[in-house]
């Protein structure tokens, strides 16, 4: 499988990372190197093997369904690049 410039651009878009047009060929080449390395996995017979979900067989613990936290608006917003009137502020989303 070979990744071309257009696929690289599509992946960058999906990852929400701006990549300049002239940087795409080099990026595609890097992807191909890494994916070429990963291709080795096709040699392994994985028939009947379940994909691993957890290294330790364990049941996730349940907790009581109750409110344990809250009322920390100032702390939640304290690191925001742009916070106004108790909210995170972002550029216009809906026209």
């Amino acid at each position: 499988m070979s990744i071309d410039k257009d696929t690289a651009a599509r992946v960058a878009k999906l990852a929400r990372i701006k990549v300049e047009e002239d940087a795409l060929p080099a990026l595609a080449e890097e992807f191909n190197t890494i994916l070429g390395f990963i291709e080795q996995l096709n040699e392994v017979d994985v028939e009947g093997v379940e994909p691993m979900t957890s290294v330790t067989p364990q049941k996730l613990k349940r907790r009581v369904d109750q409110v344990t936290d809250g009322d920390q608006q100032d702390k939640v917003l304290s690191n925001a690049p742009d916070a106004r009137e108790g909210f995170f502020a972002v550029p216009k989303v809906v026209e």
Binding site: E50, P51, M52
Partner: peptide, 26 residues
């Protein structure tokens, strides 16, 4: 991040991500 995005993207999830998790089990 972009390699991860690619191996999780529609059409490649099984071929890459699920296969890797199977190999991990082995």
């Amino acid at each position: 991040v972009m390699v991860g995005t690619y191996v999780l993207s529609a059409g490649f999830y099984d071929a890459y991500y699920n296969r890797a998790r199977r190999v991990r089990a082995l």
